[in-house]
Design a protein around this nucleic acid. Structure first.
Lengths: 220, 220
DNA sequence: AATTATTTTTAGATTTACCTAAAAATAAAA
DNA sequence: TTTTATTTTTAGGTAAATCTAAAAATAATT
């Protein structure tokens, strides 16, 4: 059984490990709004519990057990987000903080039943995949919108940026999950992208285009 | 802003205050499965924060602020219980522990929306009243089943005992909330009560009868 | 390779919520 | 009204998760 804090460390390490194999102390500290010294302390504790492998000055990796625990927290977080949006009508930019608390509720039964109540969703409101109860993710084939060529079409199925500002911006432009889009043009000058969104012409900056994930319809 | 632990103390004091005005240190300790010395420590802290009035050796009472905080936690607890039973199909004897965790989730918006989602319920799965967002309880007129006379009839609307064993027992006898009952006889020998429950004759012990709450239909 | 900069760890403190054991206050009984 | 019993508090200590400041290891630069 892990404490609330230990769970947060595991989750953070899990997410950071998606980018680098050995997760650095400083990176964890920054992500968790704490100091490197505190991270070192906690890492030792997690290592003692067999949740991470740790070599001094070399960063950490999750053990099998640690990874499973982290995935379980991610699962809970994302299921709660679905609940908040689908059932309680929260907007996709409002759910993160509350889910951050709800993810630590311990009952397994609760999550099983919540999953069923929500219809076993495969993705959260931002398109992030929800692992099943065995920790397995459905395979997803995302392409960043920025990588599409003129003429390519697809469906918006995710975002790789979860800040409220970004999500509200997308909402205003009408770029929400499930929407069909087609690339009309890429501006040479600033790299902004002209897209066709249900007969409407929308221009988005290169920065925005980087963080929209598309699943292509057939040909690619 | 209170800690998880402080909230639990306030809630416990609130419940104990329903029986005695000045809540004793030992009573709190017993209820919270902790030691009197720890309670004294926490009481001082709560007093410093203006959440309880405290005179040494004389027990505590909640201040207005303390009481409002406690009621808010009770509200959350009971709404989550409704959610668990109505939406996730938990049994009424299975919800307490999970609600005990959920009640500490902080978002006000969450509770407002949950309340609406559940249809603004007035009572939890055990018949306990749910305060509205201003902390006001709907007036309830309960009579203990044990106090009814032969011939009296009414509806089961609550229980004053929440142990899993008791609730399962009631479930097995068919004595669930909303059921109509009538008193057929009270046994001289052991004080057990014969009741009529949808044409069936059911005998319940005096002890059980003490903890079933009835709202009488018209005449009383 | 030596120096400088960065990252990480250690050492020693602090805060929160506990604890045990002993002392003090209050309540009950002789 | 003493004595005894109960309740409550104080004193001193522990474990978890932090912190700051300083030391040690690693990485980058000249």
């Amino acid at each position: 059984m892990q404490s609330y804090t230990e769970e947060n460390y595991l989750k953070t390490i899990y997410h950071l490990a998606e980018k680098t194999t050995n997760v650095q102390t400083n990176a964890i500290a920054e992500q968790m709004q704490t100091k490197p010294a505190s991270v070192t302390d906690m890492i030792k504790k997690l290592a003692d519990k067999g949740l991470v492998d740790y070599i001094k000055y070399q960063g950490v990796t999750l053990t099998e057990t640690g990874k499973n625990t982290a995935i379980d927290i991610v699962r809970k977080h994302r299921l709660w987000e679905v609940f908040l949006v689908d059932k309680l009508n929260f907007k996709w930019d409002e759910v993160h903080d509350v889910a951050e608390e709800l993810e630590h509720i311990k009952s397994i039964e609760l999550i099983e039943r919540l999953d069923e109540f929500l219809g076993f969703p495969k993705a959260d409101p931002h398109g992030d995949p929800i692992p099943d109860k065995n920790g397995r993710f459905a395979k997803t084939q995302f392409i960043k919108l920025i990588e599409l060529k003129v003429g390519d079409a697809g469906t918006i199925t995710g975002v790789s940026q979860h800040s409220s500002a970004f999500l509200k911006h997308l909402e205003k432009l009408g770029l929400t999950l499930g929407k069909q889009i087609q690339i009309n043009d890429v501006t040479d000058f600033d790299g902004s992208v002209e897209i066709l969104l249900s007969d409407k012409q929308v221009n988005i900056s290169r920065e925005v285009a980087k963080h929209i994930l598309i699943s292509s319809n057939g040909k690619n």
